[in-house]
Design a protein around this nucleic acid. Sequence first.
DNA 1: CAATTAGGTTAGAATAATTATAAAGAGATG
DNA 2: CATCTCTTTATAATTATTCTAACCTAATTG
Lengths: 150, 150
Amino acid sequence: MDRYKNIGLKLTPQRLAILDFLEGNTTHPSAEEIFAAVSDRFPTMSFATVYNTLETLKEKGAVIELTGDPRKKRFDPNTAPHHHLICIRCRRIADVQVDYKIDLPRSSRMGFEITGNHIEFYGVCPACRKGGPEKTGSGVQTAGEESHEN
Amino acid sequence: MDRYKNIGLKLTPQRLAILDFLEGNTTHPSAEEIFAAVSDRFPTMSFATVYNTLETLKEKGAVIELTGDPRKKRFDPNTAPHHHLICIRCRRIADVQVDYKIDLPRSSRMGFEITGNHIEFYGVCPACRKGGPEKTGSGVQTAGEESHEN
DNA sequence: CAATTAGGTTAGAATAATTATAAAGAGATG
DNA sequence: CATCTCTTTATAATTATTCTAACCTAATTG
Ligand SMILES: [Mn+2]
Ligand SMILES: [Mn+2]
Ligand SMILES: [Zn+2]
Ligand SMILES: [Zn+2]
């Protein structure tokens, strides 16, 4: 939490509540989930404040926004480079700390200046394998979900 | 186009128009863009039909849905495993045909059964480098955009 | 201390994307 | 033709996100 003292932000109670909820959280929550968790300890919290704060934190580099769940934005307080493992049934997202050296050859860069990369692994989580959760109706079919093994 | 004859679908004019637009299209268009392109040759086309068709094609495995643009879903008629290069300014998405062997060690699988993977490379496209497009306001800061080089 | 200022929070309205509903159309079948 | 099934359409409803304008609050100034 001390890590936030120097990001050039006024640390208001609301922001602290959000940061506190995010701190060490590896569930990659959505704005909605953050709002739910924080507003119950902090009943005056507004949805706008959650979005405002997340936007600000994003700009300051204190959180990153994840794609991978096409239904909503999700946020990650872990800003160190890492990859993700996504359940194609319930969209649970787990961290992958393995380091990969993936370099895009200049000939494949299409003139882009490369700034980074991110791997999404797809799979079925333990709960969903047991006919479990699957909050998502029929599952969201996304790129790579049926790539060949490597 | 013949490839669609055997996907077990009634090939209605609307579906053919959509498939025709998608065929060989490497721009990874959104539903909106598909609707715009198709409805002008086919004025009675409904937005619902675009979504219905895309959903059906997705189920049949004829298109895949891309994440990576947090603002809207985008679709790819190229269902062969491949990766993508995304402009962090304008969200243009280009194909990456390079093949990577990325294996997730069993110890990092968290009990998931892995079904595939997908790499997103981030960068700035040629147009945006020249202070060009950048239809997106301040750019969407997303996971991996500032990973270290590998 | 009163007045200003800048930034933050709030409720609620407004947008944008997507999904759901129900009526109408079109083709195949008997 | 009557019926069945699938498709399309218009429109309403939902969901997620962003915008707006009023209100607060802490710090600063005179
Ligand atoms: Mn993470
Ligand atoms: Mn592609
Ligand atoms: Zn799951
Ligand atoms: Zn660009």
